[in-house]
């Protein structure tokens, strides 16, 4: 039996006015039909930092993440405000395709297109109207270097992306996202289908990418959250319970539910 925890007692940090924010949600609620999957999520994400979203399965962290770049459109109803550069991107008349170019996403299972490595990266760029071969080639190299994949694939750019290993495919998906030159990168358990060595590579890549992008990552792996993130949000049954600097969360959790989750005596 899952212990009952009060949803009243939460510990959510806010940031001083001089901390630049990349993204901020205000009272975000998510409904799947009549199922209220996310309650009052108000979180701020500082620029050029890695924020980890942790919690058990079904706690709503992926739901929250997918709402940030409107990937839940047509699947769930999302209310509340999502502030990005002083624009509420949860408004119905916002251009969602434009939003997704600024807020990229990498999924749980690597999902490269059934195309060559090069095509995987330039397909969306061409769809956006970039035709110049030199510009495209430069983007391919830059994004593959950014995802720490360039040295492994530079001689095989025309090979099928499906011939890559799982870890390489996932880094290709990261490269494909950063080729769009987004501001924010959302990652939904990007390492859960990968072996430990590939996981280390992806984590190193993220640490490097943090310099240019704001990263929000959902993870099941608490060690991973502890290793790479600057702050951590803990989700429980559709509520954000605690949002504190990662060091604080893992050494001195503020509320009972987080203490139990971190120590493994949850439920």
């Amino acid at each position: 039996m899952l212990k009952e925890y009060s949803f009243e007692k939460t510990a959510i940090q806010t940031f001083a006015d001089n901390v630049p924010l990349a993204l901020r949600t205000e009272d975000m609620q998510v409904f799947y039909g009549s199922n209220h999957a996310m309650h009052d999520a108000s979180l701020s994400f500082p620029k050029n930092q890695i924020t980890a979203l942790i919690g058990a399965s079904g706690s709503g962290k992926s739901t929250y993440l997918r709402s940030l770049n409107r990937m839940n459109d047509g699947i769930a109803t999302v209310t509340g405000k999502i502030w990005y550069h002083d624009v509420d991107i949860n408004e119905p008349d916002v251009n969602i395709y434009e939003i997704r170019r600024h807020i990229g996403m990498v999924f749980q299972r690597p999902n490269p297109f059934s195309k060559s490595i090069r095509e995987n990266i330039i397909y969306a760029l061409r769809a956006e109207g970039i035709k110049d071969k030199q510009v495209l080639a430069e983007r391919v190299e830059r994004s593959l270097r950014g995802a720490a994949l360039w040295d492994e694939v530079k001689d095989n750019l025309d090979k099928s992306a499906l011939a890559l290993s799982g870890g390489q495919q996932q880094r290709l998906c990261i490269a494909r996202s950063i080729a769009m030159e987004p501001d924010v990168l959302l990652l939904d358990e990007p390492c859960s289908a990968l072996d430990p060595i590939s996981t280390v590579k992806v984590e190193e890549t993220l640490a490097e990418l943090r310099k240019k992008y704001t990263i929000i990552i959902v993870t099941h792996n608490m060690q991973q959250a502890a290793r790479i993130s600057s702050q951590c949000a803990f989700f429980h049954l559709g509520h954000v319970m605690e949002y504190t600097p990662t060091a604080t969360m893992f050494s001195n959790p503020q509320i009972p539910v987080t203490q139990d989750y971190i120590s493994g005596s949850f439920g």
Partner: peptide, 15 residues
Amino acid sequence: VPRNQREAGLSLGMS
């Protein structure tokens, strides 16, 4: 065709 292919396309801002 797996769903995640559609998500990949949409997440890159393709219609």
